[in-house]
Design a binder for these strands. Structure first.
Length: 511
RNA sequence: GCCGCGUUGGUCAAGGGGUUAAGACGCCUCCCUUUCACGGAGGAAUCACGGGUUCGAAUCCCGUACGUGGUACCA
């Protein structure tokens, strides 16, 4: 009988939520949903010195925006609460003690200064290996070297200490990674990692194993940066709960900076002019705002899509995937091994595709807010949707809708008269004056009629309609852009069309 | 330094012994459109290197190079 699929995303709340973090969430989520499993969010806040106000809240807001809702979390509750490691503090110690009892861990009383000294000494001796490991632990101030009575005395006296894992040398630890296959590590180069810190908090190494066990996690996905410490986790599983109970691991490739090499960081985004965080993040200390994908005008559908295919594809030519598609088609085995450079141009292309694909009504509310910020209050939703539908082909970001369609809501502030002036004539002026009259008498105000009247009059005046279309466009739009002129006229209405033509005529005939 | 992981056009990538080595983004040309787009048709551009194995290697093996991650009482 197979176990229930349970996966977790385990962020530490130390700042904005990075692209790579969201992708990890996404892969977790997709895997869980595909297998009718549970997606858990566990807050890994064991380092109290790195606590950042608001970061936890912010993470959940990002997940909400992306539509990747956890089944269990601090916010959503669940049978394995609490979901914040700082609130689970008391659970970890017993496991560390158990390891000590079984000979797989030991108390270490060394102060940071003593460890530093040890490293200096090793360096002087020309050693490349500065780890606290089997080579040197016999010389350090720990329960391995001390007599049991001495250790007990120190413990009783409340001497600050940590608990370290005791790595046995000359062994190989194997790990079967769902993406990378078999990986093995020589324990001679694995150090005796701290499991329980002097403040009583577990380190990541202990906490991740204990909580994955307690929360019955079946599959553990995390970034590739964790691979080097994986042997510690495997050993912990072996000693504490048995290898059979261990979740299946998958180490995800990194998302790299577009230029040069290395992990994509927030700084790269600032430098190259694109966001790295899912949503705007305000640093609580400095008040600095780091731009997010949401705020610069991305659709969550596009964001999920572009993240999903950054390191994965289903082997077909499909590029556009809805979340439902992804749930159906995602498989962790098809995730790539190598890191991918982030390409903002392609990211924008995905957004453009989603803007075109989705009905405008789907994102009209968000665009409405963008308009409101620019001082245009939308009152007629039907009209608004019709406008968005008409211009969406030319919008890459939600924020583009403003430039592309503001003229539907207020007459253009300035007209690009230079586009018309050189070829302007008394004859054309006369055409437009008469066209106004023709428009006034139009009974049915629709695109076909408006266009027909235009062409008839042009023919009567013996002017090529093409020569009149650009002036007409400038009159209505203000510039050389936008959808078909007559569809614009049809939408903005008779009065508005006539008034814009009249005003433009005044301007063009001014001198 | 040491250890792990990786490497197909500028970027994302398919392909896992025999292919003209897909497709997408971006770039360029053309068509459509008397605007800007959308759409359509084309184009330039690739298997890191060196050795093997094999009739045959982008694909398998070994090296090398390069990159990247880790090497904390951070996660």
């Amino acid at each position: 009988m197979s176990k229930k699929i349970r996966v977790r995303f385990a962020p530490s709340p130390t700042g904005g939520l990075h692209l790579g973090g969201v992708r990890t969430v996404l892969y977790n989520y997709l895997f869980a949903k595909k297998h009718c499993g549970d997606f858990i969010v566990r807050i890994e806040d064991t380092d109290q010195t790195r606590y950042v106000e608001g970061a936890e809240d912010y993470i959940f807001k990002c997940l909400e925006w992306c539509g990747l809702q956890p089944d269990e979390s601090v916010l959503h509750g669940g049978a394995y609460a609490p979901y914040r490691q700082s609130e689970r503090k008391d659970m970890y110690r017993q496991y560390a003690e158990q390891l000590v009892k079984d000979g797989h861990a030991y108390y270490a009383f060394d102060t940071p200064e003593e460890i530093e000294q040890m490293r200096e000494l090793l360096k002087e001796k020309g050693s490349h290996n500065l780890q606290y490991d089997h080579n040197i632990r016999g010389n350090m101030n720990n329960s391995l070297r001390l007599l049991p009575e001495e250790t007990q005395k120190l413990l009783d006296a409340g001497t600050p200490h940590v608990i370290r894992i005791k790595i046995e040398p000359d062994e190989f630890v194997h790990l079967s990674d769902m993406i990378r296959g078999d990986i093995s590590f020589d324990t001679n180069i694995v150090d005796d990692k701290v499991l329980l810190k002097a403040d009583g908090m577990p380190t990541y190494h202990l906490a991740v194993v204990v909580d994955d066990h307690l929360m019955k996690i079946s599959h553990a996905f995390r970034g590739e940066e964790w691979l080097p410490s994986a042997p510690v986790h495997v050993l912990l599983w072996k000693h504490l709960f048995g290898l059979d109970a261990m979740p299946q691991w998958a180490h995800l490739p990194l998302i790299l900076k577009p230029d040069g090499n290395g992990k994509l960081s927030k700084r790269d985004g600032d430098r190259l002019g694109f966001p790295v965080y899912a949503m705007d993040w305000t640093d609580p200390k400095t008040g600095d705002i780091t731009k997010g994908f949401k705020e610069i005008g991305f659709l969550p559908e596009a964001f999920n899509n572009l993240l999903a295919v950054l390191g994965w594809n289903d082997g077909t030519e499909q590029e556009i995937f809805s979340l439902e598609d992804l749930i159906e088609k995602f498989s962790i085995e098809k995730v790539h091994k190598g890191g991918a450079k982030f390409d903002f141009e392609k990211a924008k292309w995905y957004n453009h595709e989603w803007i075109k694909k989705l009905p405008a009504s789907h994102y009209a509310d968000r665009v409405k807010i963008i308009f409101a910020n620019k001082g245009i209050i939308i009152t007629d939703d039907n009209y608004f949707n019709a406008v968005l539908e008409l211009v969406k082909d030319r919008c890459t970001l939600l924020t583009d809708f403003y430039e592309q369609s503001a003229y539907f809501f207020e007459s253009p502030g300035t007209l690009d008269v230079d586009a018309v002036k050189p070829k302007w004539s008394a004859q054309k002026s006369e055409f437009f004056s008469e066209y106004i009259i023709a428009l006034r008498s139009l009974e049915v105000w629709d695109m076909a009629n408006i266009e027909a009247a235009f062409k008839e009059l042009a023919a009567a005046k013996n002017i090529k309609p093409g020569e009149l279309q650009l002036p007409m466009r400038i009159m209505l739009v203000g510039g050389k852009f936008g959808p078909a002129v007559f569809s614009i006229a049809a939408l903005i209405g008779k009065e508005e069309t006539i008034s814009r033509v009249q005003e433009a005529l005044l301007l063009l005939n001014a001198d």
